[in-house]
């Protein structure tokens, strides 16, 4: 499932974004979640509180489709917004929390939760890095769920920066979804696996799909390893 990759992303986020802890949870709905990794006790507790109370930054980030950046949990707005989560999080030792949704358009995978023991906002470079780690974690989860093997996935994100994805990659995802009768997540994973198995760039493969020069056929059983 690429859990060790998730752990690496969390560790890197802590070092680069200058936060005290990071955690990744997979989510299938705003309140159904599975904590995959937490770098420390506080991060683990923040995940637990949000799961227990069904409220918190990650619930809002997942539902709203954008980051939730809280520079100071002890400010007035927070206890009104999350009456149960806020005091619990403060009690655990967190003062600032930054939650980034792990998503690619309609594909919603989970969240990356970062926290600091002191209040303060992310400076622009830290936000840029945090967004980058969220994109990386999202791809790890997409490939992990599809069973794309670790070496391939690892190579994958070195040359596949979602920030530079052309519109065609997303259009192709929609087309493959319709061709295979599958979910957007599976369609995206199939596109990626196809590109990496042939040592090609994702945007080239996407272009062929949009140009209707490449079609994907459903293969039984669905979600099998893509070895075509």
């Amino acid at each position: 499932m690429g859990d060790d990759l998730v752990a690496q992303v969390c560790a890197a986020a802590v070092a680069v974004v200058h936060v005290d802890g990071a955690a990744v949870s997979m989510m299938v709905s705003p309140t159904v979640r599975d904590a995959l990794h937490a770098t420390d006790r506080v991060s683990g507790e923040l995940e637990e509180w949000q799961l227990a109370f069904g409220e918190g930054p990650c619930v809002d980030a997942f539902a709203g489709g954008g980051p939730v950046l809280v520079a100071d949990l002890s400010s007035d707005g927070c206890s009104a917004r999350w009456p149960a989560f806020t005091p619990a999080a403060l009690g655990s030792g967190a003062r600032a929390v930054f939650t980034l949704p792990l998503q690619v358009g309609a594909i919603r995978l989970g969240v990356l939760d970062l926290y600091r023991t002191r209040p303060g906002r992310l400076i622009p470079q830290e936000l840029a890095d945090a967004l980058g780690f969220a994109d990386t974690a999202a791809l790890v989860l997409v490939d992990g769920a599809a069973g794309t093997d670790r070496a391939t996935a690892g190579l994958g994100w070195q040359r596949d920066d979602p920030a530079t994805h052309q519109a065609e990659v997303h259009q192709a995802t929609g087309m493959v979804l319709a061709q295979l009768g599958t979910s957007a997540e599976s369609a995206f994973a199939r596109l990626r696996a196809h590109a990496y198995a042939r040592d090609r760039q994702l945007c080239e493969v996407a272009h062929e799909v949009v140009d209707r020069r490449l079609r994907f056929e459903p293969d039984p059983p669905p979600d099998d390893h893509d070895q075509e």
């Binding site: 690619v104 358009g105 309609a106 192709a172 493959v176």
Partner: peptide, 14 residues
Amino acid sequence: NSRVVIEQAKGVIA
């Protein structure tokens, strides 16, 4: 991200 959702939907409909 909304823009990405729209691109995906365009692909489905196309």
